[in-house]
Structure formats: structure tokens, C-alpha cells
Nucleic acid binder design. Structure first.
Length: 431
RNA sequence: UCCUGAGUAGCUCAAUCGGCAGAGCAUCCGGCUGUUAACCGGAGGGUUGUAGGUUCAAGUCCUACCUCAGGAGCCA
């Protein structure tokens, strides 16, 4: 009995007989020869079936099976220069696990809605497959970066009584008779993690009930949030910069095959090395005004502004020290400029927008208390958060990175919906 | 929520000034021993998003609604 192998390792089995368990991706046939494009989740290989060299039963089965039929194929691995992977399979036998008729996603074009309704099947298509493999590898690279540097993973809760950025953008639920929300950010809990472990991070799903309809937003997205005790805004920019550059450079190596099948231009990614330019909010405003934009000091940047600023550099850009009134309650004020806070955003190049938002948090208990009141937030649910300032408070800082935006940038996808297996968006909860 | 655009065969689209509902792919039948979204010949396949209106005549014009897409605001 020949050994069962995955398609990705076929190159190591040239001139041997092997068994492949997979699915029919596409088929081309002529009167006496048929080409089966086979996939098994690890790759694609072309199986060649010659009439007369296999049992009539096998030939008849080959003629009958449709796209995505599940098959177990036995054959001889042959090196062939005509094959994209360098090998093909001379089929000697085939067992049909299920013959499929009418698989909806054909090798021709389809519309967005049609494909999104069949997302559970669309995952099998080569481009979607490649994007999600990149996502999987990027998740590992992100975790590895922090584990290798002594961080502790402190999982933040998903159900929370807190509304950090206002209740209008929260998904609410009933928690045994009490209101609860799906978390918008793990940050507040990560601050507790930083005080306990020095360097902590979380990486999990977060939720925003924003009625936004753009290519850069999902209602459920994954966020990576490191938080570091005794760190300042400048430390956080150093860390975020080294993190992004390291992950991108490793991804170029780890995801080489996927980037090839996605036809991603590697040149812009190869330029992503530290240091990244750091632009003060004041400078960013000046830059926009000089570019002829009608932008007033004190406003927040829109997507167009971000792109305009990042186009000035060919690298990710930090914008830092924002006006206090456009940022959340927990941001530490700039000692030299009381109208500013020590926040920083990292804008990705090529129009991929805000990749990271972070900064230094308020550590003074009195200041935090007054900021909570100024933002009209109830004191009671934040008592545990205040405790972090009552018992051994220290300056600390951290950031949050949206995983899907990183995946979109690395893979060159224009829309976030393709960067997560089952996207949740305005108007889409299925499949 | 606002702005713009689209909804016609299973899928992707066409249909000129309001005048016979069309193509490619998919499906089915036939052909082909090196195909790479294979190709060649043939066939079947339609309540034109929904409801109403104008007209001799509506896929096409008008009104309302529904759905989707692109963008804005907001954010990661």
C-alpha cells in the first residue's frame, strides 16, 4: 500500500507511489486523457489519468465527478517542468468518497454578495486560502514576538460591564438580569496585567457596533494589545516600531508561497524597517494645510488625511501627541503642553490606514478620577481600575493593533472582509 | 445615518430613442492523448428585486419600498 502524503510534501516523493486524500478543484478532459486538479488543503497538484492505463471504472468515475467531489487518489509522483509546483501525479487508482454535482463557486467570476453568502465554501478558493494562511502565520508571528521578549499573555474578558468609548458603539447583552457589553478593547484589563506581570499582552476578538460601511471596518475584529509598566509614549513607539518591522520582515520569509499566489508586490514590504518617521500632531496639521487641505487644528484625521500624511514617507508613520478633547479619558497629558495627550497612532503605508493606536495612560489617581467625571462616566464600575492607581501606581503605556488591517496590508487585499474567516459587518451575520 | 451607483438565466454581464429577452461560463448530449479559468459542435434554461403608476406598448419612464456595492463620518 503506497504511503498517504500531503500535496505540500509531494516534491520529496518523486518517482514513488503515493495516496492523496482531497477534493477535485477543477477538471479538464479530452477523449482519452483527463487532468484532475486536486487539492487537499496544503496545495494543488495535477493528476493525469490516461484511458486504458486505468480500470474502466476509474475512467468512468473521472468523467462523472464534479468540482469539489471528495476523492482518494493513488498515483506515481513525476517531476514535470510544465507543472507550476514542479510535480504531477500519474493516477493509477481513485476512490470517490462523494461525487458532487453543482458546486456553486465555479472557476469564473462571482459577485461579492454571492461569495460572501457562501463564505464557508469560498474559503476553499486559492486566493482566500492564501490570505487565511497568511493570517494564521501572522497571528503566530505576533504572539512569538511578545513571548520571545518575556511578555505574559493575559486574556482579557469578552463580556464586560464597562463602556470605554460610549454605549452607542457597544453590543449589549443581558448578563443574568444586568446589562453587559461585548468588549471594545482589552486595554483596561491589560493595565491590570502590566501591574501584575510587568509586560503583558492580550490577543482576542473585540466588538464595535459602529454603523460604518467601509473597507477598513468590521464589527468583530481581533486586536493585539501589549501593555508595559514603567513605559512612556516614546518606549511604546520604539516597541511598536520594532514589532511591526520584525513581523513584516519575518512574514516575507514565512509567507513567501502565499504572497506569490496572491501576486503581492513585495517591494513596499521590504522597505518596512525601523526607524519609522514620528510626526507631532502640530506638524501633521501643518503638513495637511500645506498640501491644501481645509483642516483645522483640534480635529481628528479622516481616512483621506491619513493616506495623505503616510504618502509623504514610504513607511509607516507615527502621529503623536493629539489634542486632549479628541482622545479617550485614560490618556496621559503632555507635561509640556496641557492641551495635548501622550497618544500615538501608527499609519500603515499604501492606504491601509491606522494600524495601531496607543499611548501613555494616566497613572495619577486624582487626575484619573477627574477625567472620568469630565467624560460623564460612572465612578462605580471603574473602582477596580482606580485600584490600579491606588496600590502602587506607575507610569505605563501600551498599544492596540488591529490584526485584520495587518493581514490586509501584508496580503495586499483591498477589503477587510477577506482577511478573517467569517467576517461580521454591518448587515452581515451569516454564515 | 448621509451621498452615489446597481438589481435581467445557476453565475458574470449585454439589450441603442419606450418596440420580438441576448452572450460567455456552469448544466446536459456529442467530439478530442498534454490541458493550465482547456478547446470545438449542439441542447435545455427567464414572473427582468417587490408593489403601484404612465403608455397602444415598460427590462427601459415615474413613485414608494427592499437588498447589495462604493464612498463619507467614526475607528483598529
Amino acid at each position: 500500500m503506497p504511503t498517504c502524503v500531503y500535496i505540500e510534501s509531494l516534491v520529496d516523493h518523486v518517482d514513488s507511489d503515493v495516496v492523496i486524500k482531497g477534493w477535485l478543484y477543477n477538471k479538464r478532459s479530452s477523449g482519452k486523457i483527463a487532468f484532475l486538479e486536486l487539492r487537499d488543503g496544503t496545495g494543488l497538484v495535477q493528476g493525469v489519468v490516461v484511458r486504458g492505463k486505468v480500470d474502466d471504472e476509474v475512467w468512468n468515475a473521472v468523467e462523472e465527478i464534479g468540482q469539489e467531489s471528495s476523492v482518494i487518489v493513488t498515483g506515481r509522483v513525476k517531476a514535470d517542468a510544465r507543472a507550476p509546483s514542479g510535480v504531477e501525479l500519474g493516477v493509477s487508482a481513485m476512490e470517490v468518497v462523494q461525487a458532487v454535482d453543482g458546486y456553486p463557486i465555479t472557476p469564473k467570476e462571482h459577485g461579492t454578495e454571492f461569495l460572501m453568502d457562501r463564505r464557508h465554501l469560498w474559503l476553499r478558493s486559492s486566493q482566500q486560502h492564501a490570505v487565511l494562511r497568511v493570517r494564521s502565520k501572522l497571528e503566530k508571528l505576533c504572539r512569538d514576538y511578545f513571548y520571545e521578549r518575556g511578555y505574559t499573555l493575559v486574556d482579557s474578558p469578552i463580556l464586560t460591564p464597562l463602556s470605554v468609548e460610549g454605549t452607542t458603539t457597544l453590543f449589549s447583552t443581558d448578563y443574568f438580569g444586568r446589562p453587559a457589553y461585548l468588549t471594545q478593547s482589552g486595554q483596561l484589563y491589560q493595565e491590570a496585567g502590566a501591574m501584575a506581570f510587568g509586560k503583558a499582552f492580550c490577543f482576542g476578538p473585540t466588538f464595535r457596533a459602529e454603523k460604518s460601511k467601509t473597507r477598513r471596518h468590521l464589527t468583530e475584529f481581533w486586536m493585539l494589545e501589549p501593555e508595559i509598566a514603567y513605559a512612556t509614549i516614546d518606549d511604546v513607539m520604539d516597541i511598536a516600531e520594532d514589532f511591526v518591522a520584525t513581523v513584516i520582515q519575518r512574514a516575507l520569509v514565512e509567507c513567501d508561497a502565499e504572497l506569490t499566489s496572491l501576486d503581492r508586490d513585495r517591494a513596499p514590504l521590504e522597505q518596512i524597517t525601523a526607524p519609522f518617521p514620528r510626526v507631532h500632531y502640530d506638524e501633521a496639521v501643518k503638513l495637511l494645510q500645506e498640501a491644501g487641505e481645509d483642516f483645522a487644528w483640534g480635529s481628528d484625521f479622516g481616512a483621506g488625511h491619513e493616506t495623505l500624511i503616510s504618502e509623504h514617507f514610504g513607511k509607516p508613520v507615527f502621529i503623536n501627541r493629539f489634542p486632549t478633547k479628541i482622545k479617550p479619558f485614560y490618556m496621559e497629558p503632555d507635561a509640556e503642553r496641557p492641551d495635548l495627550v501622550l497618544g500615538c497612532d501608527l499609519i500603515a503605508p499604501e492606504g491601509y490606514g491606522e494600524l495601531i493606536g496607543g499611548g501613555q495612560r494616566i497613572h495619577d489617581p486624582a487626575l484619573l478620577e477627574s477625567r472620568l467625571a469630565e467624560h460623564g462616566l460612572p465612578a462605580e464600575p471603574y473602582q477596580w481600575y482606580m485600584d490600579l492607581r491606588r496600590y502602587g501606581t506607575v507610569p505605563h503605556a501600551g498599544f492596540g493593533m488591529g490584526l485584520e488591517r495587518l493581514v490586509a496590508w501584508v496580503t495586499g487585499r483591498p477589503h477587510l472582509r477577506e482577511t478573517i474567516p467569517f467576517p461580521r459587518m454591518l448587515g452581515r451575520l451569516e454564515p
